[in-house]
Design a binder for these strands. Structure first.
Lengths: 331, 331
DNA sequence: CTGTTAGCGCCTTCAC
DNA sequence: GTGAAGGCGCTAACAG
């Protein structure tokens, strides 16, 4: 009997209407991913991970762009929340207005990706930005650099992306007894290649040029590489460059780019797990998860001196396999 | 009265349930965009254009990845067609099995992006690939190159992306009386940076190195730049390089990349227009639309000789403003 | 102009 | 085991 029905289904080419099903069960199997810009390689790669993992769990992903505009973020969240199209939202925000988030919590499951927010009202998953920044700068120090610049973000306390990275940068300098020179930090309005070029122009306008630049995104770093080239400086001979995000393209630049690599796939996995739990009705208090990161060493920071190289590799390899939180890998 | 209701809506925070609305009216306002990989910069930029234009027309875009796998393409199209989630599909396919498309036409409005299919059963919009390739190679010839290689695609007749580009490449050579050397074409399994490196390795293994390389994607070109660098060849001094897609990153490479630039925004606009017409019930026969392209000249092809530079610029500027189909722009 | 109703396609419940 | 019914929230059609 069951078979007879099945046969009829096949013959008539029956497809269940997901709309009606969704209406009936109050669940669509669709989640929304909100990113500033899908054209930014980091967000593209993140989206890819999320789409893959979600489809493995039976969810479909709708991607929307916020342009990093908080108003648009709110608007899109409202639409998502009200319309019941979607079961939940993954929000990769740049700067988020705190107050409004609370209102959304009641409406719809939301998990924040990447940046941390102060009020502990929403689930969040990201890397330890401060620690990652410290790792990167400490590596530059170990490789013999002393005038280490940093570029990216506005450096304001409210800037939840750049602030911890600046703190980590300062911590590393302090740890090595290197005085902090405010001229060596260049703020940028965004994390694009163009801004990376501008920031380098600014840094080179001062009397003493930096011998290393820690960029808060790979895009900034690519712009920096380009502008250093324009200025006739050689990387890594004259200046070391480190990026952040470990975007795929960074393996192919000339020189290839040393970069802080967040574990994107674990980020996606954790975020989806938390979101799906919420969708399934979990009411546990908001959680704050950390995923690992690694410093991927490539050409833009030059050869490491022999001792520190092996030491570093061995030391951190053991460490990272133990904690799975961070490490240094030479590629 | 109308106002009293409105007031009540506001007070109670009423949000229409789009699911029920969709069920009732048989229309969701959602379209699906199928791309091979969202991490490929070209598809990212295309997705961005489409999301923007769609939202301006009141549509939301769901992005799904096919991995360029025809089976997955079909599966996703089937899901889309059956489930009635979506009003229509934009499909950016690499190689599509012809037969199956016909079946889909009846199910759901579909517009093909980029690659052309033989059977005229579905709407299609793309650039004139053959003409674009000819433009690029003619430019290389005008700038004095004679051993011009091409890389990308499998070169099979069924490969609807690479075939017209190869034809255009050959046409340009023939037009200039340059004999076609089969060793100067390197096939690649995909359009990635890694494949670009491999292809260059292959080209350099032959006795006489090329003095120019025309790559069928910017990603291939970035890999080519990198591998030429590894081999100690200078670009553009020893070898000119031209890419295809004019991805944003190509402005920042060292050297910056000359590239064929499809009019992505018009591509998105045209595709959406056609799709929405279909969604609105239009039954006109399948259309085949062309959008413009431009050759953006940057550092990777060196300085153009003075006469041909101005001549070219003037000539093609006029031409392109007239036909809006192609042109050469020096950046 | 306002009020009522039927039904989009599904799934869950309850009855047989 | 099979069958029937109600209702998810909406809107189009119709009645008052």
């Amino acid at each position: 009997m069951r078979e007879k029905v099945q046969q009829a289904l096949d013959e008539l080419g029956y497809r269940p209407n997901m709309l009606a099903r969704g209406l009936r069960q109050g669940r669509t199997g669709i989640i929304t991913l909100l990113v500033p810009q899908i054209t930014v390689p980091y967000f593209g790669e993140l989206a890819h991970e999320i789409v893959e993992q979600a489809s493995a769990r039976g969810f479909t992903v709708m991607i929307d762009e916020t342009d990093g505009d908080p108003e648009r973020e709110i608007a899109l969240l409202k639409v998502a929340g009200g319309s019941s199209w979607v079961d939940g939202v993954l929000l990769s925000s740049l700067g988020l207005e705190e107050g409004v988030l609370g209102a959304l919590k009641s409406t719809l499951p939301v998990v924040l990706l990447g940046e941390h927010t102060a009020d502990e009202v929403l689930d969040h998953v990201g890397i330890d930005n401060e620690r990652a920044a410290t790792d990167a700068v400490e590596f530059l120090i170990r490789s013999g650099r002393t005038r280490i610049a940093a570029i990216g973000g506005m450096g304001e306390a409210s800037d939840r992306t750049s602030r911890p990275r600046i703190d980590g940068y300062h911590a590393a300098l302090r740890g090595a007894g290197i005085p902090i020179d405010p001229q060596l930090y260049a703020a940028t309005p965004d994390y694009t290649r163009g801004s990376g070029m501008d920031a380098v122009t600014q840094l080179l306008s001062f009397a003493e040029a930096p011998d290393a630049i820690f960029c808060f995104s790979d895009d900034l770093a690519l712009g920096a590489l380009r502008q250093l080239h324009n200025a006739g400086l050689r990387v890594p001979d004259d200046v070391s460059v480190v990026g952040f995000d470990d975007v795929d393209g960074s393996r192919f630049t000339i020189p290839s780019l040393t970069s802080v690599s967040p574990d994107k796939s674990e980020l996606a996995r954790t975020a989806l797990e938390m979101l799906i739990e919420r969708i399934d009705g979990s009411m546990v208090p908001a959680r704050d998860m950390r995923v690992g990161h690694t410093l991927i060493v490539r050409e833009s920071t030059g050869e490491i001196t022999v001792e520190s190289a092996s030491e570093t590799a061995a030391e951190t390899a053991a460490e990272s396999s133990a904690s799975a939180i961070h490490g240094v890998v030479t590629q």
